[in-house]
Design a protein around this nucleic acid. Structure first.
Lengths: 356, 356
DNA sequence: TTGTAGGCGTTATCAC
DNA sequence: GTGATAACGCCTACAA
């Protein structure tokens, strides 16, 4: 932890000026003799460039921030997993901001862009408020928003499409002969809740199925709440033959309740989840689930940001990532073991020390 | 994205020197009149302190790095989830390094400490090589290692204890009357694999149970591999009445195979996993699992690092976090629904835009 | 109380 | 080619 050497230290040691040291270090044309003496000195001293000083001079930090509510959320996590390598390969470090469910913190993070400790930011806002739009309009560095932002906001924008996602699921259930398809949704005042509710109505309409209030139950995006909501729905409409759940946790809750009630899945009631998290493959029966393409959205966002950091001047771009349905046992039955390698992503034990 | 204002800009606008601006911004005693003019100018210009310049001067970045193999691994993720808020509350940003399973990358990351873009680092090495030890010995900033590091290495060290963890599980199974307890392990040349194997032998010995090669099968830490290994073990020893699995994924594989073979869990065969990931609570039957305290290790590591960043001079410290057994249906049966709130951590849908 | 000046470690522009 | 020297934006003696 000794005071690290600087180019000045090297210059002295090699008997040259700091300018020459800098040249050598940056591979600029230099006499061979000078090169070797500088290199030797640097080697001996264990010199490493100071990133902070470089950044001050170059106005580039080679850092990018990723801000979202909670790394524990599988959707954000899969974004992160894609963003990380893309940035790394491009020579950028990743600064992580987990803001919690607090909108004010998101504003803070946007504000902190002014500190210029990063070259740009990828953000997944919980919801987009007026304050967000103001900050985005005056941001001192490029921002890519994952989520939806009004037309005219001067940022790149990567969107999911859960309405279509719900529709994929409903179509699938319909094709399997289900006609009394329930919806177990999250709160309607959240962006996903509203979009999924709308998708459900739309899908039914397109299939010529009637919309029936009794087949819809609102809870929250948690397993407990899912159980409660499904129990209620089941009591009210025992004839339901399929359940569209607004996320995988709700769907797990549905499996719990159906099992306890002695209903077979999928023979009596088919179940579809959403987000296609690792839990979907792990559950029994494994869960048919709609992926909203978190991974792809993450990757796309990173690519858009990098592109903008190469100082290309584009108008704001909007990319919508299509959803995808992964069919598993909870709708089609069968032993269907998880695909090989499917769960490999979260594999491997973890190092420990076997102490004690 | 206009060129941001600096203290010079403000100084001109307020008609004072940059020194005065700096004083006001840092709350040093200043005449009221000056204060208000500077504040006004700063406000109007939307001034934000440049973090890079500050860091250069103060030799503090207020950034800390967390380096591990893969954010997707639930164990690392739960560390991250704990580290994040601890650092944030202390005013540090978190730089994430996902090194992949490449040892050379870990060395690179340690080397990059010399660039001084962070004040310190928390690292979870895959395994600790000579190269690691060298880098750690000469690190230019404090490092906390999660994992085990030889006595004398000049870094703080937070350890798990999977040997004791295995023992907890075996004791539990023994108390339930199981006597032919199999082990489904990962590769023995990994730290966790070796430790878990040792713990298994130890635990059997302590209980007076014979060690039987036929009851042990080595695979890898993945679900597929778990299935394969369990199938082999089951074919060889159909009389096995319990399976200790070296992680949760292997245990899920075990459930798959047992179900396919018509063995009831836990009546015929009890199953225990390890790491106590979200998957354990999600599976059916829910999985009894040993937690190695990843979350607590993460938090502890963060606290140790922060403490050291407050320039306290300690000798290297070693903390060992004890394992804990979470009992669920795969050993005790029963409907035992997941505890309320247990799966809440990965809850909530994700924002999207319902576009398209 | 305030301003001038020097330095944090690099890079880059000049003359030489 | 190479060496002074001036930034980058901020903080802080020291002098006024």
């Amino acid at each position: 932890m000794a005071q690290g050497p600087t180019i000045t230290t090297i210059a002295k040691r090699a008997g040259v000026s700091i300018a020459s040291v800098s040249r050598v270090l940056n591979g600029l044309p230099t006499r061979q003799d000078t090169v070797s003496r500088v290199m030797a000195a640097a080697e001996e001293l264990g010199y490493v460039r100071n990133a902070v000083a470089r950044s001050l001079k170059s106005r580039r930090t080679h850092q990018v921030a990723f801000a979202m509510a909670d790394v524990g959320n599988p959707a954000y996590l899969s974004m992160l997993r894609e963003i990380q390598p893309v940035l790394k390969d491009a020579g950028y470090r990743l600064v992580l901001h987990s803001t919690g469910a607090v909108v004010a913190d998101e504003i803070d993070v946007l504000h902190s862009l002014g500190e210029r400790y990063v070259d740009g930011m990828i953000m997944v806002p919980l919801r987009v408020t007026e304050a967000h739009l103001e900050m985005l309009a005056t941001a001192r560095a490029p921002v890519v928003v994952i989520g939806s932002v009004p037309e005219g906001t001067p940022v790149d924008n990567v969107r999911a499409d859960s309405r279509t996602g719900v529709r994929l699921a409903i179509d699938h259930l319909h094709a399997l002969g289900r006609r009394r398809i329930g919806l177990v949704n999250g709160p309607l005042d959240t962006v996903p809740g509203a979009a999924r509710g709308a998708g459900y109505r739309e899908a039914l309409g397109a299939l010529g199925l009637p919309y029936d209030d009794e087949l819809v139950e609102i809870g929250d995006f948690y397993r407990d709440e899912g159980r409660r909501a499904v129990a209620t729905l089941l009591a009210r409409r025992p004839d339901v033959d399929a359940l569209m759940c607004a996320n995988d946790l709700i769907a797990l809750g549905a499996l719990d309740v159906l099992r306890a009630a002695g209903r077979r899945v999928p023979e009596d009631v088919a179940v579809v989840g959403m987000d296609d998290t690792d839990l979907a493959a792990a559950s029994w029966p494994s869960l048919t689930s709609v992926s909203l393409g978190s991974a792809e959205r993450g990757r796309t966002a990173a690519e858009l940001l990098l592109d903008r950091l190469q100082e290309s001047e584009h108008a704001p771009r909007v990319v919508t990532v299509p959803p995808r349905l992964t069919v598993r046992a909870s709708t089609t039955g069968g032993e269907a073991p998880p695909r090989v390698g499917e769960s490999g992503t979260t594999g491997s034990g973890e190092p420990d020390g076997g102490g004690g």
